[in-house]
Simulated assay, not measured.
Amino acid sequence: MRRIYDPPEPDDGKRVLVDRLWPRGMSKVRAELFEWCIDVAPSPLLREWYGHDPAKLGEFAKRYRAELDDQEHVEALDSLRKLAHEGTVTLLTASKRDDISEATVLQQVLTGFA
């Protein structure tokens, strides 16, 4: 998991953006993405409610995990799981703090630490 604004690393594997919105100032060429997985991102309502407030992280994670069980997200999450089983996947986010982003929660879900 990394910020999309960080330069790509040789060991990134498949780079997957997991944000709903395209990152400001980032070109698609510079991003070097394998995939932009919009459908795995939190809903607009949840994202706006959370606002990356560290005090809300626990509740955000709980609500986001519940959303990941919704039909809207299941196929996208299954696709990410398949990619992860095939090799290295780097989840990318534009969040200023990736440690409190949806990518952190998603990484925990994908690795079984949810």
Rank of each mutant, 00 (worst) to 15 (best):
A76N: 08
M1E: 07
E32L: 05
F34G: 03
L45W: 01
P8N: 06
R3E: 05
D53Y: 00
D39L: 04
S101I: 01
L91W: 09
S79V: 00
T111M: 04
R15N: 07
A55F: 01
E48V: 00
Y50C: 04
G58Q: 09
D11H: 13
C37T: 00
L46H: 05
F113H: 14
Q107E: 15
D69W: 00
D99T: 14
R20K: 12
R63I: 02
L57W: 14
D99P: 02
F60P: 12
L110Q: 13
Q107F: 05
R2D: 05
A61I: 00
F34H: 15
R81F: 01
V29H: 13
H73Y: 04
R24M: 10
K56W: 05
F60R: 08
R15I: 01
D70T: 12
R30P: 01
T111P: 00
R24C: 09
S43Y: 06
V74D: 02
D39M: 01
H73E: 01
V105I: 14
Q71S: 12
K28V: 02
Y50L: 03
H85W: 00
T104R: 15
A61Q: 15
D11T: 11
Y64R: 08
V74F: 01
A103R: 09
T93C: 09
G25C: 09
Y5I: 02
R30E: 14
E9C: 07
E35M: 05
S101N: 08
Y50T: 07
D70R: 14
A41G: 13
L57P: 02
P23W: 05
L83F: 06
D19M: 07
Y5G: 06
E35N: 05
I38W: 05
Q107R: 15
T88H: 04
A114N: 07
P10Y: 01
A76K: 08
R2S: 15
T93F: 04
G112T: 06
L110N: 11
V89K: 10
L57I: 12
L21R: 10
H52G: 06
R15Q: 02
D78M: 07
A31H: 13
A41W: 04
E102H: 15
A76R: 07
K82Y: 01
T111F: 04
Q108D: 15
A103P: 10
H73C: 13
L92R: 12
L17S: 10
V16L: 04
E48Q: 12
S79G: 10
P7S: 13
F113V: 03
E72T: 13
Y5F: 14
P8A: 15
D6T: 13
K28C: 03
L68R: 09
D12W: 02
F60W: 13
